[in-house]
């Protein structure tokens, strides 16, 4: 039987209350949201927080709001809500693609976007999704808020820009015109973590060229969550099969997968390349379909 080490538990009543508790308990305190990454780690004693600050009562952090040219997602928004949202599917089908294959329904009933990003596990699907979409995250402390681009949020595996006494409160995603996005994942069995996965988000200029390109990879190394080299290749170019294949090769060359029981490094590199070009192809097709339907203009 796996039992976490002892800790003190406090249930926050508001964001301010949570921040006060986090500040009071300092280094030894951890936020618990869905608990579906943290509790398994605590059961294995890979994490031993002295204080848990439970934020599950903070319904003020559970929202999806379209606000001008961005979507605002509260940190406590559960996987299930993201999966079932029509607004999310319309503007960011990459989220819906990914949520369909993240864990399983009972896990999705608990796990949150804030917990997924703060866990900063390079295998986390939503990290790759938010990276492809060039999201921004809002970090709040007692002194106020700061907005951090998601590409600067990760400081390494299991490390983020969230400091002691702070928490993540919101994720912001820019809504773009003539845009399309998609997520491709290979898993060993339903609901498993990725062997490798790739997300792509494209926005086209008036003349059909690629104006904005985002690519995020999962499970092929912490530095590959943001596939910069592949993104650079795409900008300003005309979408084509050859271009997407080349971008895939770059993504594959640039990542640093490690061999484990899910596959060899070589296999994962192959997947990163192939899944990147597949995601790009589908993202481009969705952008084109949106333009045709007049929705993306």
């Amino acid at each position: 039987m796996q039992v976490p080490a002892s800790f003190d538990y406090r249930r926050a009543e508001s964001v301010d209350d949570a921040l006060a508790l986090l500040e009071r308990y300092g280094d030894g305190a951890r936020v618990i949201a869905g608990g579906h990454s943290l509790l398994p780690m605590m059961k294995l004693r890979l994490a031993r927080p002295e204080y848990l600050v439970d934020i599950n009562d903070l319904t003020e952090l559970d929202y999806l709001r379209l606000d001008g040219d961005r979507l605002r997602i509260g940190a406590l928004t559960r996987h299930r809500k993201l999966l079932e949202s029509e607004v999310v599917e319309h503007f960011f089908p990459i989220f819906t693609d990914a949520e369909r294959v993240i864990a399983d329904p009972p896990v999705r009933n608990r796990g949150t976007i804030g917990g997924s990003l703060c866990q900063a596990d390079p295998s986390e699907d939503l990290s790759a999704v938010c990276s492809a979409l060039a999201a921004e995250v809002v970090i709040r402390g007692r002194g106020g808020e700061r907005v951090v681009p998601v590409h600067e949020f990760y400081r390494g595996p299991y490390e983020t820009a969230v400091g002691v006494g702070e928490m993540l409160v919101e994720v912001r995603i820019p809504v773009r015109h003539r845009a399309g996005s998609a997520y491709e994942k290979v898993e060993r069995k339903a609901g498993d973590w990725a062997v490798a996965a790739a997300g792509a988000a494209l926005a086209l200029a008036q003349d059909g060229r690629i104006e904005v390109a985002g690519i995020g990879l999962a499970a092929v190394g912490a530095d590959a969550v943001h596939a910069r080299a592949a993104e650079e290749l795409l900008r300003g170019r005309e979408p084509s099969e050859e271009l997407f294949a080349e971008a895939g090769r770059r993504a594959g060359d640039d990542c640093e997968p490690v061999a484990d029981n899910r596959g060899t490094a070589e296999y994962k590199r192959h997947l990163a390349a192939e899944l990147t070009s597949r995601a790009l192809r589908r993202a481009a097709a969705r952008a084109a379909a949106g333009v045709e339907a007049g929705a993306g203009v």
Partner: peptide, 23 residues
């Protein structure tokens, strides 16, 4: 005990959750 098998599923406020991964 590792939130994988689902035999511990109960309904929490009406929705399925794995009770080995809820305090």
């Amino acid at each position: 005990d590792t939130s994988n098998c689902g035999t511990c599923v109960v309904l929490l406020d009406g929705e399925p959750v794995k009770s080995c991964t809820v305090l």
